[in-house]
Design a protein around this nucleic acid. Structure first.
Lengths: 117, 117
DNA sequence: TGACTATATAACGATCTCATTATATAAAGT
DNA sequence: ACTTTATATAATGAGATCGTTATATAGTCA
């Protein structure tokens, strides 16, 4: 499993996205992170582990607490990938738009080739 | 499950990301999409279904074929979310950088508060 | 030391995911 | 009509995921 796989899988869960939201406001303890949720503390700890294995957060040790915070490098790797694909996909959308416009002009309300049913 | 959940879960699989890559070059049939992979045709059809349920691609009917293509609206929704979060997270990273710089200046090679172990 | 607090880990069950093979459907070609 | 081609669906099994409760670990405080 690539790091990209893990990053996207991590973002696929709404609880984990909410945890990232909170961490975007700054470092927080497990207790603080767990407070808004109706699920157990162990469940939160598990979600945090998933986020950490995805490289999106990191843990500090402070006495008995283990405060988490966002990890810039991990998030950056994700943005890099997305940036490349955004450019690529948008180019394709432009192409699609052109085709659709072309069809609209050439043959309004009718299919163009013999292939469509 | 929100549409965002489905979008991220869809991106979490390398086969599906590769399918999107291919579709970024233009519409393609299931056969064309399946060719580069060592997995069965039914497995590809299933991946395509996941991508379609995530709103990232759409299907056209052309005779016996079912060519797929990227679906702009779905991808746009994803970018919107990501754009908001990118901004938010980067703001946080800047804050973290400031803190780290501040620490480096104020107390090089030493922890600042009594809380760290 | 003993109790309290913060967090992690283990064990478990329900549900999802992803692959396989076998089979169904439906259009196209002869 | 019969065969071939393109694709979808069903049945199945292995492994992952996500929740729970119970318990372990390790600082802190009196």
């Amino acid at each position: 499993m690539t790091s990209l796989d893990r990053s996207f899988a991590a973002l696929a869960d709404p609880v984990r996205r909410a945890l990232l939201d909170r961490l975007a406001e700054g470092e927080a303890s497990v207790q603080e992170l767990a407070r808004p949720f109706a699920i157990s503390q162990p469940a939160i700890s598990r979600h945090l582990k998933v986020l950490e294995e995805a490289g999106l957060i990191e843990t500090r040790i402070a006495g008995t607490a283990r405060p988490r915070r966002l990890k810039p490098e991990g998030v950056a790797a994700l943005w890099d990938w997305l940036g490349r694909y955004r450019a690529q996909w948008e180019r394709q959308f432009e192409k699609m738009d052109c085709v659709l416009e072309g069809l609209a002009e050439a043959a309004p309300a009718k299919v163009p080739r013999g292939e469509e049913k």
